[in-house]
């Protein structure tokens, strides 16, 4: 009983990222060359090596993370995903009437796939020799990935932040390290604030661009209207809003997430994130993409090093559970369909 009251004596522990752009560049360039030479088959191995590099260079409390995904499972998932995607595009191109027959089963399968994706990702991640796990129910997946999106659309996106909250709660409340559960206590209403601010920004900048377009139209400057202005608008909007949202949401989620008696702190700053994203984009374009591995490492270093672990007791008390294999298919499908649930 004494230990409980001394929880504040456990010092905060910073997460650290030990990777470097130079090291990752070598892995990255080999990955790309082999992926092209093997017509994409190597991409599954490339993915495993990329994730291993980032996981193993992420450390907290004297131990690094590790990724255990199996390339062959990922490859099979990718092949199935590619086949489905080609089928989808061929149908869309040549037989649009048949679209519902293809689309509706896909939509219905999507929540299941996203749940698989979460399961795969966590099951094949470890820290201190213990695997993570995701145990969200199928019913829960259909609620957050199907019911809530439909409600959000019906509400004209007024329920958008609510959906985001339910999604993160589904994710964090059903994640485990060994047999110890994560939980998230953030309230739905705290998700509304960042969304409201981004919406106001959007409104303000859209009005500005609208005025510019109108004034350009009066001078008959058609090319400017058609291409440059909306593009600038989009880039500027992304440059400001993406980092703001990432920082706010990551902080919000992790500052209210527990792992057993342990807590986390996330101190991302939108301004620093915006600087990193803007310079990364610029240098990547200027170097025809060669800066990309350096950009990825820079980003990972900042995001990881802004995290702090606040132990509530000794970190030696996590224990493993029985192991189970999880199929890679869902994750690859979700990735191919371009769905990112990382935010």
């Amino acid at each position: 009983m004494e230990r409980l009251s001394t929880s504040s004596t456990h010092a905060a522990i910073d997460f650290e990222f030990t990777g470097t752009g130079r090291d990752y560049f070598r892995i990255w360039i080999v990955n790309i060359a082999l992926t092209i030479v093997t017509l994409g088959i190597y991409s599954a191995w490339a993915k495993v090596r990329r994730l291993q590099y980032f996981y193993r260079n992420t450390r907290v409390a004297g131990a690094s993370f590790d990724y255990h995904g199996k390339p062959v499972a990922i490859l099979i998932g990718r092949l199935i995903a590619a086949a489905l995607l080609i089928g989808y595009h061929v149908t869309a191109e040549f037989n649009p009437i048949l679209m519902p027959i293809v689309l509706i089963p896909m939509m219905l399968a999507l929540p299941w796939m996203l749940r698989q994706s979460l399961r795969f990702r966590l099951h094949y991640s470890s820290w201190r020799g213990l695997r993570f796990a995701f145990r969200g129910t199928v019913a829960g997946a259909y609620r957050v990935f199907l019911l809530w999106p439909v409600l959000t659309a019906v509400s004209l996106y007024l329920l958008g932040p609510m959906l985001h909250h339910r999604l993160k709660r589904y994710q964090h409340d059903h994640s485990f390290l060994g047999s110890t559960a994560f939980s998230m206590s953030a309230l739905a209403r705290s998700f509304y604030r960042p969304y409201a601010i981004v919406f106001l920004w959007f409104l303000a900048s859209a009005v500005t661009v609208g005025l510019l377009v109108v004034s350009a139209a009066e001078q008959d400057d058609l090319i400017a209207i058609l291409s440059i202005l909306p593009m600038l608008f989009l880039i500027g909007f992304m440059m400001l809003c993406a980092p703001y949202m990432i920082a706010r949401i990551q902080n919000l989620i992790w500052n209210s997430t527990n792992l057993g008696s342990h807590r986390f702190e996330s101190r991302l700053e939108a301004r620093k994130l915006a600087w990193i994203m803007a310079t990364n984009l610029l240098l990547t374009v200027v170097t025809l993409g060669l800066f990309r591995p350096f950009a990825a490492v820079r980003m990972a270093r900042y995001r990881v090093s802004s995290m702090v672990l606040l132990p509530g007791s000794a970190l030696d008390e996590f224990v493993a559970t029985e192991k189970a294999n999880v199929a890679a298919m869902g994750q690859e499908l979700a990735e191919f369909l371009d769905i990112d649930i990382a935010l």
Partner: peptide, 21 residues
């Protein structure tokens, strides 16, 4: 034994899934 990956630790994984960083 895990691959060499720059400054990342080498992981020695045993058959019973014990691991040494």
């Amino acid at each position: 034994v895990s691959e060499a990956m720059g400054g990342a630790p080498r992981l020695f994984t045993f058959a019973d899934s014990a691991v040494c960083e």
